[in-house]
Design a protein around this nucleic acid. Structure first.
Lengths: 131, 131
DNA sequence: ATAACTGTATTAACTCAATTAATACAGTTG
DNA sequence: CAACTGTATTAATTGAGTTAATACAGTTAT
């Protein structure tokens, strides 16, 4: 279900990490769900298991999934709401950069809020259309 | 005036591009202002003129500055408010990623708006404290 | 004109992250 | 035992970013 974008400049393993996290946010992947095995996903995407493994290890480091040797990888049921000041500073810097780009692209604060609302709507858990 | 952050994972030339754009947004650099020459800035930052040149070429491509051979580089007086759909899509993807991270960090939409307001206040043109 | 600045361009070398490939080891399940 | 799982390692490749050393061309002040 994760789609790789060749035009995306982010590394493949980062795209995988972000893709899984997006599906968790949207509720497509729920706590306890088993996700594709490393070799399965690697086969589907025609990439090496090594790259998928790296993505899964990063996801486990972020406590998004839990890896069990011999069994598979499962969505974690405990969201890591640590609210670290370090993470906030990192996000604030990213957001500042985005606001600057937003400005140079000719858009204002109001339009930014509009798009954010649109994004939050898209990220709403889709309980009804679950598969 | 541009400060390089060694902990920042972005390439140096990207940090330079973003740094200049931030100063333009803040009004610290005004249209027509001449910025440091390639060799001057390279000397201040102890990096090769090549890297600064790359940043300046990118800034000229984005129409943030104008380079004049033999003279120097000047802040452009015409903001490039092209409002391209392509740029909007790029920014929307970045913003979506940020919202996902924001969520996993344990923060909500309201707190996002708060931080955005804080950022927009910091980016307000500082007409009084100009140098 | 000469010196000392500017931007621009080119070439080569180096470093590092990302990716691939191949292989091996260890735990689980039917 | 076979066929899955995750984990680990090593080697090779690719590409971006950076550095260094030049060279060339336009501008400005003396």
């Amino acid at each position: 279900m994760v789609i790789l974008n060749l035009h995306d400049k982010r590394p493949i393993y980062v795209q995988l990490v972000d893709g899984i996290k997006e599906q968790v946010i949207k509720g497509i992947l729920k706590p306890g769900d088993q996700i594709l095995s490393i070799r399965q996903l690697a086969g589907q995407l025609s990439i090496t298991p090594n790259t998928v493994s790296r993505a899964y290890q990063e996801l486990e480091r972020q406590k998004v999934i839990i890896s069990v040797k011999g069994k598979g990888n499962y969505i974690n049921d405990v969201p890591n709401f640590k609210r670290s000041e370090e993470k906030m500073e990192e996000l604030k810097k990213l957001l500042t950069q985005l606001c600057i780009e937003w400005n140079f692209a000719g858009y204002n604060r109001g339009e930014l809020i509009e798009v954010i609302d649109e994004i939050y709507n898209n990220l709403k858990k889709e309980e009804s259309t679950c598969q």
